[in-house]
């Protein structure tokens, strides 16, 4: 994939049914899962360092059902991360999105709690993430202990980065650490999604919407029009309003 993609989930500018096309595979997977008997997760094997990616206990509780209160949402499932896992999770979230000027760190907007909610949910996508993330957090601690003699949360930024650098870049994941690379990539997209979907995150990215207005839709600002006109003309095309 030449450019990383900002994938859409249904959002204000969602096309009709756009989510359907994008979610099709997910949908079919869900349907298949509903129809097949729950197959036990395959054991994930051992890495070079001797670390075992143990399969965590799957969640068997109920979801929120097909008619939950939309005005007063609750998360009905119990949260399952241990204190130690949460500590590693928080440290990793903040490594991915540390505080930066006015932008708060991931932990300051509750991202670790969200990850806990996510991997504790009784749905297929979240269960798949659970099977990657829980052993992944244990891997972080094991790796930190063997390299720096302490759990991931306690070894300091430089040592944390040294571990992250081995697993955070596509095509450059250290041989033998592929599983940890998958774990990091998944944690990154969840952390980013959880972060930028808060109001603080909107501020950081610049999303100005979800604000009711009146009168006709104002459309692009004069500055935005000037800009797009310039882009269009630079490509040898003609700018025209409909």
């Amino acid at each position: 994939m030449p450019h990383a993609l900002i994938q859409k989930v249904p959002s204000p500018e969602t096309l009709e049914d756009a989510s359907l096309t994008i979610d099709r595979r997910t949908t079919l997977r869900w349907l298949a899962a509903a129809m097949a008997a729950a197959a036990p997760l395959a054991a994930c094997g051992e890495t070079k360092s001797g670390f075992v990616w143990a399969v965590p206990q799957p969640i068997t509780g109920k979801g929120y059902g097909k008619d939950p209160s939309l005005m007063d949402p609750i998360v009905p499932w119990p949260l399952t991360l241990t204190k130690a896992e949460l500590a590693a999770c928080a440290a990793l979230c903040d490594l991915i999105l540390p505080a930066d000027g006015d932008a708060p760190a991931a932990t300051a907007v509750g991202v670790p709690a969200f990850i806990n909610e996510w991997i504790s949910a009784p749905y297929p996508d979240q269960q798949a993430d659970r099977a990657l993330i829980i052993p992944g957090l244990a891997w972080l601690d094991a790796e930190a202990k063997s390299r720096s003699g302490g759990v991931f949360a306690k070894i300091g930024e430089a040592s944390q980065k040294a571990i992250a650098d081995d697993i955070a870049y596509k095509g450059k994941v250290k041989p033998g650490m592929e599983k940890a690379g998958d774990f990091f990539a998944r944690m990154r997209s969840l952390t980013m999604g959880a972060y930028y979907s808060t109001q603080e995150g909107w501020q950081v990215i610049g999303y100005p919407g979800n604000t009711p207005g009146s009168g006709p839709y104002p459309g692009p600002t004069p500055e935005a029009i000037e800009h797009i006109k310039g882009v269009i003309e630079k490509m040898g095309l003609t700018y025209a309003q409909p």
Binding site: M1, H3, A4, L5, I6, Q7, K8, V9, P10, S11, P12, E13, T14, L15, E16, D17, A18, L95, I96, L97, P98, D100, A164, A168, Y169, K170, R188, S189, L190, M192, G193, A194, Y196, S197, G201, W202, I205, G206, Y207, P208, G209, N210
Partner: peptide, 24 residues
């Protein structure tokens, strides 16, 4: 049917990135 732009960032909006921290 066409569209895209400065939409509300969601939990599924951030596949395909690389690295971490300030660069990210």
């Amino acid at each position: 049917e066409i569209g895209g732009g400065f939409g509300e960032p969601g939990i599924g909006s951030f596949g395909g990135f690389d690295g971490y921290g300030a660069g990210l």
